[in-house]
């Protein structure tokens, strides 16, 4: 005879299942939590438990030129890439999200293809292409801001498309008809109805593209130049030699920046839907 009733067994099972799920969840979150924790450690050499807490490492982080410049370059590249991706992606999404036509999925496939090309492969290919380009035209592309921006735009376009198409597909076609019925032509309808209604998606797409560009590592590795490094690359090259609270402070800055942008974006359009 079991001492436990069916009900208490089930309750036990449910609790242990929740415990298991949360442990797996912790596995996901813990490294980031630790990075933020270490960024406030008083001791220079990372060891647990800490001897005390300080915010000096953040000042230290900003004093390192490669981090400061990397951060600024990343901001610039991501902002430009995000805007370019919107400029290219919104018109495409307006067609693909609202019309059915032969070849629609082929066009969508082409625009989404940067997602399936691995970063290292794509980066190497673009790098070699830029060098060949430079040989042919004497216009330098590799290790320049425009070159980096173009490459980042390529990887941001699919994310813009995903968010925008998902939003426009769910747009009631009767809204556009209602607008035209009330005397608005196609252009007025586009600017007075379609785009305003899709505004949350546009904001979310912009933020998401920015983040995708900001955190890119593999593609950028090939396209940065001496003294012209993005923040993730600066972090990786620093980490190859040292692990100290300074780098954790840098990582914390990135976590806070990206985290707040994603939380803002999520208020407009549920981000998990973009995956």
């Amino acid at each position: 005879m079991s001492v436990l009733s069916d009900r208490s067994l089930r309750r036990l099972g449910r609790w242990s299942f929740s415990g298991l799920a949360l442990a797996i969840f912790a596995f996901l979150i813990l490294p980031l939590v630790c990075v933020i924790w270490v960024a406030f450690f008083a001791n220079k050499i990372v060891s647990f438990p800490p001897e005390g807490y300080t915010i000096d490492w953040f000042k230290n982080a900003l004093a390192v030129a490669s981090f400061r410049d990397g951060f600024l370059l990343s901001l610039r590249v991501s902002a430009l890439a995000s805007l370019s991706a919107l400029a290219l992606g919104i018109p495409a999404a307006l067609l693909i999200g609202r019309r059915q036509f032969p070849g629609r999925s082929a066009i969508m496939g082409l625009l989404m293809s940067p997602l399936v090309v691995p970063g290292i492969v794509g980066g190497a290919a673009i790098y070699m292409f830029f060098i060949e380009w430079e040989v042919a035209t004497e216009i330098q592309m590799a290790a320049t801001l425009p070159g980096l921006m173009i490459a980042h735009t390529v990887i941001a376009v699919p994310w813009t498309m995903r968010v925008m198409v998902a939003s426009l597909v769910s747009l009631d076609p009767a809204l556009e008809e209602a607008s035209m019925n009330l005397g608005a032509n196609r252009w007025v309808t586009l600017f007075k109805v379609v785009l305003p209604v899709a505004r949350p998606a546009i904001v979310a797409a912009a933020l998401l593209s920015f983040v995708i560009s900001f955190i890119d590592l593999e593609l950028s590795l090939f396209l940065v130049g001496p003294g012209r490094t993005t923040l993730p690359i600066a972090i990786v090259s620093y980490l190859q030699w040292t692990l100290d609270p300074t780098i954790c402070a840098v990582a914390t800055i990135q976590i806070v920046l990206i985290g707040s942008m994603l939380l803002i974006a999520d208020r407009f359009v549920s981000i998990s839907k973009a995956f």
């Binding site: 990075v35 955190i215 972090i235 980490l239 954790c248 990582a251 990135q254 990206i258």
Partner: peptide, 10 residues
């Protein structure tokens, strides 16, 4: 979306 660099640092 935190980036591989930061997560690996973790």
């Amino acid at each position: 979306l935190m980036g591989n660099a930061v997560r690996t640092a973790g």
